[in-house]
Design a protein around this nucleic acid. Structure first.
Lengths: 212, 212
DNA sequence: TGTTTAACGAGACGAACGGTCTAATATGCG
DNA sequence: CGCATATTAGACCGTTCGTCTCGTTAAACA
């Protein structure tokens, strides 16, 4: 069901093939993303991730100083992965700016559907959990939202210049609004295991842009 | 800092004063709400709640069959508490319907501010955690949202009848939209420990109602 | 080619957790 | 008085958490 590379693992110092040497770390990160987007940080034990990829505990603490450090690495990776996704959509100048944003929304919806609405957004998940998370995560998570917001704001700005949305739209504020609501929609879609919350939010959001 | 009733607890069967006899259970529920709105279900241990109110474990398992049953009781109580809050605002016929909704939003914002934006919405918190929660919670949580949505939809309907919002507004859908986004705003306000997300969402939502 | 050192795998370890259980204590009731 | 009932008290068990120490293997250097 998941990334089940049961490549027989050798002990001792590995041969000098950099691609191979990063494999274990890579596997841990990938599995971590899968599990954490589904269950969050606190509810997930290291062992679960370990078992999933067939790596013993000792390896984990070789690659990461602690569960906290692992979490930070996951946030970083997820943020990057997502920023790339945004760029891919927003950079597609073959369509109008507003369409670019819509295509991201659609893509994200398909992504959730592909996992049966069981997985949400890592950043949203961890944000919700901040009450019990290392305080160092707070700034990191907020920064990620800031980054994503920037990108959406730019896209909206382009749409406004092109007259695709009302000139009265405050792009920065609308971008903030977008992520606030989108995360709510993802959360709700996960709860109901259904796409409707995403659709309802997207419809409402885009309708609002017509009038500012 | 919290409900620190350190009422000296007597062992043995208590005297027949029903108000007193429910006290321990009551204290557990109250403390549970405080902690779970802040940290969620998985991250919270029974012991933490117990210590907070100075109740030994034996009592806990006397009043609740399990942590799961305790969670279910908390959801029920929170849903009731919140429904009452909604009714209080929406039932205040001295102001226009839209104002009633706005006053709820304002009240909720003050509520979060009072706890320094450390506590969120229990239902939202648990919703996010569904990935690791007993499956029995899912229907219960969804039903709560359904109930709240109903109430908001009714309020919106009243506003529409009074011409306070565009006749084009789909009240049911807008109510769904409201809760989707509002939960996102609460989550974000908790993350940033600031009221802006609530304001941004509320502004955008109410603006959208003008045009439907 | 032999010794040292870096890189990694393996699993033992103590603390904490959820949950159960028995005992202790006090009241209600016949 | 004595038995049933309600509640507190906390020892206890199996699990799981995150950390740590050590063994094993290859690279590095001479």
């Amino acid at each position: 069901m998941t990334t089940e590379h049961i490549i027989p693992r050798r002990r001792g110092r590995p041969p000098k093939r950099p691609e191979q040497s990063l494999q274990t770390r890579e596997l841990l990160l990938r599995a971590g993303l899968e599990v954490l987007t589904e269950k969050g940080f606190s509810a997930t034990g290291i062992d679960e991730i370990l078992k999933r990829v067939g790596v013993p505990k000792g390896s984990f603490y070789h690659y990461f100083d602690s569960k906290e450090a692992f979490g930070a690495a996951l946030i970083e990776r997820y943020a990057l992965y997502f920023a790339a996704k945004l760029d891919r959509h927003f950079g597609d100048l073959s369509k109008p700016a507003l369409e670019r944003l819509k295509s991201f929304v659609e893509d994200a919806g398909h992504g959730m559907a592909r996992h049966d609405f069981r997985r949400g957004c890592l950043i949203g998940n961890l944000g919700q959990e901040m009450g019990s998370l290392p305080e160092s995560f707070r700034a990191q998570l907020a920064a990620v939202f800031g980054d994503w917001q920037r990108r959406v704001a730019d896209c909206l700005e382009a749409a406004r210049s092109a007259g695709e949305v009302s000139a009265a739209v405050d792009c920065e504020r609308s971008a903030a609004y977008f992520w606030i609501g989108w995360e709510g929609a993802v959360l709700r879609a996960k709860l109901e295991r259904a796409p409707e919350p995403l659709e309802i939010f997207a419809d409402g959001f885009f309708a609002g842009l017509r009038t500012g």
